[in-house]
Every structure is written in structure tokens, then in C-alpha cells.
Design a binder for these strands. Structure first.
Length: 320
DNA sequence: GTGATTTGACCTTC
DNA sequence: GAAGGTCAAATCAC
């Protein structure tokens, strides 16, 4: 569909880094020519100047990339991320061995990385996992880590897409009453303010929930998110509380906001907010998603258009 | 020791 | 009774 074509958009930091790298490469090419005996254009200040420029470009590009990645890498939510993600299979084997094994233990793929547990700006604690009928993948249950401390009722459910395992559907329930949004997320919000122009708009932001194209946007991390119009009935089966009574109001997240801020308390005002993401970092099988930045940093990235996984976008339509 | 994750068991809803 | 949601003991990493 036409709305896919936007070229998906690198983050501001990424774009800046890309430009800087391109500039550095140009300088390096000139320097190489100089080293090979070519005459130096008058505009250039000599080999030393070129070398300095290359270094400067690289430094700035690295700084830009790091600035773009620090928010997530420094997130408090990642406290146990790396170790935990690196050992799940081992842990499960141990537990399975201790308990005589279990079907669920063998079913879930090894977790590789959890570096972005708090990518939506909140700290979540996993409290359950359930095999869902007619679904190949289990549903994961998270609640706000501050539930005990602040009585925060926010929860979310994450379920892997059957069509494309790299896509996860995240359903938010309840309000955050804890003001627990991470500092990193707050930084992200600041970044978001500066990256609004990177938000992809597909269709009218004020379009009605029915019949309008799904709203897709990418966050600073390049994840592509989709908000869905309705909460799956199965997700609210046991939720008779008022927080899910506002279904007719649909998703309330701001369509202008990158996803990092969409589940914030003000946005999750009551109905379940359903968001699907091509690569929520808190889930297993996300190695390649989480290496996305690495891939980006790799020279293989040459065109912003390559950032968009069009197949995933097509899948988004399946959900609607 | 602390805190997060796992997972079987239990509860609730239909 | 089935299915989904939650609890809590066991387990693990730091």
C-alpha cells in the first residue's frame, strides 16, 4: 500500500550519523587519491586537514549514534536484561530438569536480548505466560514494576504474531499511577520532540477508527508500530473493571506521538491500548531486532528505504 | 541478599 | 469444562 513508501525514516541521530559518515567517506576518498599521487583540489587543505576532517566526521557520527542509543541502553529497565536474556535456555533447562520438565519450557525460544525492556518508558515485570489456544506463541503478561510500591494497575500483554514472529502485539491495560516513567524514557521523550518529523503518518490523524488505514509510525529505534482499533476480546475476558469499558472510544494514544510515549499514563487513559510492534525488545527471538542498531551501524546500510521492512508492514494489514 | 523470571497451579469468566 | 488471567514458590543472576 502506498502508505508504506515513506522510507522509513531513520532516527535523527541516525540520519546525522549517515550524513557524517558520507562526508567522512568523501574526505577519505580524497585523501586516498592524494596518497596515490593525485593532485589535491584547492578546496582541500592537505592530507592532515583531510585526516582531521575524517576523524571529526567519524567522531561526530559516533556521538550521534551513541546519543541515539544511550537512551535505551541506559534504561533502568535493562538492569537484568543482558544476563537474563543470555541465559534463558539454560535457566529453563535447569528448571525443567528440577521439575521434571514441561511443555512450555521447551516451547519458548531462547531469549537473546532484553535490552529494551522499558522501551515504552515504563518498568515492567513479567508475571505470567500462557499458551493461547489457536496460537502458536504464548501470551506474556507484564505488570508495572511499581505495582506494589504505588499500586500502579498498568499491565500489558505481549503476544507474538503468528504471521510473522518478528511482529508482536502489545496490549496495554490500565493506567500508570506510579509516575514511574524512566529517566531514559523521559530523555526519549525529549528526543521525540525533536523527531516528530520522523513520525510516519499514514492517513488522517483524526480518521475514524473504522475504515481508516492503520496508523503506522516508527520510533527512534526504527521499530514500526501500529495501533489497532480494537482490543481483542480475549484480552479483556477477565477484565470487567472500568478500565476496559471504554472500548468505543478506541485507542487514545496520540497519533502524533512516537510509540515510546504512546503508553504513557495520559495516553492510556482507560481502554486497552493495542499496539503491535515489529520488534518489541523485551521478547525472545529479538536478536536481529535488537541488532538493528548494529546493522544500522554497519556499512550495509546505504539507503533509508532499506530500513522499512515492507513485509512487516504488509502484515500490519492482516491485523486490521 | 535482593530482585526478576519461570512456570505450575489456581481463579475467573463464559 | 475450556480458556484466559493471575498468583506464588522455585529458580536464577547480580
Amino acid at each position: 500500500m502506498a502508505l508504506i513508501a515513506t522510507g522509513a525514516t531513520a532516527s535523527p541521530a541516525s540520519s546525522m550519523a549517515s550524513e557524517l559518515m558520507a562526508q567522512g567517506r568523501e574526505s577519505a576518498a580524497v585523501l586516498e587519491a592524494l596518497l596515490h599521487g593525485a593532485s589535491l583540489p584547492p578546496a582541500h587543505g592537505g592530507a592532515h586537514a583531510l585526516a582531521a576532517e575524517i576523524l571529526r566526521c567519524c567522531d561526530r557520527a559516533l556521538a550521534a549514534l551513541r546519543a541515539g542509543g544511550d537512551a535505551e541502553s541506559s534504561s533502568p529497565g535493562t538492569k537484568r536484561s543482558k544476563p537474563a536474556t543470555a541465559q534463558p535456555a539454560t535457566r529453563r533447562r535447569r528448571r525443567a530438569a528440577a521439575s521434571g520438565g514441561g511443555a512450555a519450557a521447551a516451547a519458548e525460544p531462547a531469549r537473546v536480548e532484553m535490552a529494551r525492556t522499558s522501551e515504552d518508558g515504563f518498568l515492567w515485570r513479567k508475571y505470567g505466560q500462557k499458551e493461547i489456544k489457536n496460537s502458536k506463541h504464548p501470551r506474556l503478561y507484564y505488570r508495572c514494576s511499581y505495582k506494589d510500591d504505588h499500586g500502579c494497575t498498568a499491565t500489558k500483554q505481549v503476544q507474538q504474531s503468528e504471521e510473522d514472529p518478528s511482529i508482536y502485539v502489545i496490549t496495554y491495560f490500565g493506567d500508570h499511577t506510579c509516575s514511574c516513567q524512566t529517566a531514559a524514557a523521559m530523555d526519549d521523550d525529549d528526543d521525540d520532540e525533536n523527531s516528530q518529523h520522523f513520525v510516519i503518518h499514514f492517513g488522517s490523524a483524526t480518521a475514524s477508527r473504522s475504515g481508516s488505514p492503520p496508523l503506522l509510525y516508527d520510533d527512534d529505534d526504527g521499530d514500526v508500530w501500529r495501533e489497532t482499533a480494537a482490543t481483542p476480546p480475549s484480552s479483556r475476558q477477565s477484565r470487567s473493571s472500568p478500565e476496559v469499558d471504554g472500548e468505543e472510544s478506541g485507542v487514545k494514544m496520540s497519533k502524533e506521538e512516537p510509540v515510546d510515549s504512546c503508553p504513557v499514563p495520559s495516553a492510556v487513559s482507560s481502554p486497552a491500548d493495542v499496539v503491535s510492534c515489529s520488534s518489541p525488545a523485551m521478547e525472545p527471538d529479538l536478536l536481529r531486532c535488537l541488532n538493528w542498531d548494529d546493522d544500522f551501524g554497519d556499512s550495509s546500510f546505504v539507503d533509508a528505504d532499506e530500513f522499512m521492512n515492507f513485509d512487516e508492514i504488509d502484515l500490519f494489514q492482516i491485523y486490521s
